[in-house]
């Protein structure tokens, strides 16, 4: 039964990683990366690694999307005025 959770989590991680790469717009990619962070944390819990799941939650869930969006906002603010 424990393997079922691991297989489901693995397929979800593979799916969200593929989506995170195929989405070309950085803002939409930040959204998918947030979901990827949560799904990775679930996979790490299924593989009995709670410490790694905790750090993935904190980093992948809130920190990386925030950094990506701030970078997009800074780049868009510069390019917005040139046109």
């Amino acid at each position: 039964m424990a393997d079922a959770v691991i297989v489901v989590a693995l397929l979800l991680v593979a799916g969200s990683a593929t989506v995170a790469v195929l989405v070309r717009d950085p803002v939409r990619q930040a959204l998918v990366l947030a979901v990827l962070g949560v799904v990775l944390a679930v996979l790490f819990t299924a593989v009995q690694a709670p410490d790694v799941a905790l750090s993935q939650l904190a980093v992948g869930g809130a920190l990386t999307p925030l950094l990506l969006l701030l970078a997009v906002r800074k780049v868009k603010r510069r390019k917005g005025r040139e046109r």
Binding site: L63, L66, L70, K74, R78, R81, E82
Partner: peptide, 22 residues
């Protein structure tokens, strides 16, 4: 470290602008 990182990024994204308003 994370507070300093976010502070620098927030400053760039929110406050700092080029001189010519660009």
């Amino acid at each position: 470290a994370v507070v300093v990182l976010l502070a620098r990024f927030l400053d760039q994204a929110v406050e700092i602008e080029e001189e010519s308003g660009k």
